[in-house]
Design a protein around this nucleic acid. Structure first.
Length: 275
DNA sequence: CTTCAGGGACCGG
DNA sequence: CCGGTCCCTGAA
């Protein structure tokens, strides 16, 4: 099936470090969260997909966002204007609660290639395997499998201090009902009670997992960037919470896109974060 | 060989 | 609010 797109780059979107559940095979990208999906960008304005409905695929890839309006709303200054122009085609994904929780716990003190590899190895061990038109896919590791196979099984992935975080998250999802239909504040409360989910990881989960576009995760790169270019509005605010509020008030309801563009832009000159 | 930083969280003071 | 510590990997 085909879908028309504009201002969209599948490569940029899926390799930008916001999602770790997609793999590039040839010219296509494949994922296996709940079901196997294959997406190929044919031209700048056309996408081909299989394995899911059009609306589901568009939802996962941020294609239902009014990108033109978003860009115009967050374009508050010259710096963000540069970041926007540098990030043409980049969208915010929607990975769902569990996938983003696992991904961003694994992202703690790590770089993108390392996170991607951890997810791949875990998928091969925990995930169901399926053969889709010649491509063998392993399912994204599910929390119930992780929990049931136990803590010791996790050690083989050498996650360091993240091992207990991952297990804590798996156990929490296993024994609590959390879903996207719940009130956002209630979801946040659940997530924060997981050992390994702090303010930054929480913001990543709401932004890239739930597609809550007003979230503004602040990693070390964003913190350096705002210290350099936004010191005037940051003032003497120091805590994560205070700086976060200032930036969200500044960029508004689509702050998340400002964050992604800034991250993408700041990562440009960084070798360790390269793909 | 050693050193150091990588999309932080947690704990103690 | 601040500083130390946590585990592992890859680059220098």
């Amino acid at each position: 099936m085909k879908v028309k797109v504009n201002d969209f780059s599948l490569d940029k979107t899926l390799s930008s470090g916001q999602t770790f559940g997609w793999k590039k095979v040839g010219d296509s990208w494949v994922s296996f969260f709940d079901r196997p999906i294959k997406v190929t960008q044919k031209t700048d304005s056309s996408l081909e997909f299989s394995g899911s409905t059009e609306n589901m695929v568009k939802d996962m890839l941020g294609l239902n966002d009014d990108i033109e309006r978003i860009k115009s709303e967050i374009n508050k200054d010259e710096f963000i204007d540069q970041a926007i122009n540098y990030s043409l085609g980049l969208r915010i994904v929607k990975d769902g609660l569990w996938a983003s929780t696992l991904g961003f716990i694994l992202s703690i003190q790590s770089n993108i290639p390392l996170i991607t590899r951890r997810i791949r190895l875990m998928s091969e061990y925990y995930g169901e395997k399926k053969d889709i038109s010649g491509i063998e896919l392993s399912q994204f590791p599910k929390y119930d499998r992780i929990y049931e196979r136990g803590y010791d099984s996790l050690k083989q992935f050498k996650l360091g201090f993240r091992t207990k975080f991952v297990f804590s998250a798996a156990r929490y999802f296993y024994s609590h009902e959390i879903n996207e239909g719940m009130d956002l504040e209630e979801i946040k409360k659940h997530l924060l009670s997981i050992d390994g989910v702090g303010p930054k990881v929480l913001d990543c989960i709401t932004l890239y997992g739930l597609h809550e576009l007003s979230s503004f995760p602040m990693d070390v790169w964003i913190q350096r960037t705002i210290a350099k270019y936004y010191y005037k509005i940051i003032g003497n605010a120091k805590s994560y919470k205070n700086k976060n509020k200032i930036m969200r008030d500044y960029f508004g309801q689509y702050s998340g896109y400002a964050q992604l563009f800034m991250f993408n832009y700041s990562r440009m000159n960084n070798s360790t974060g390269s793909i």
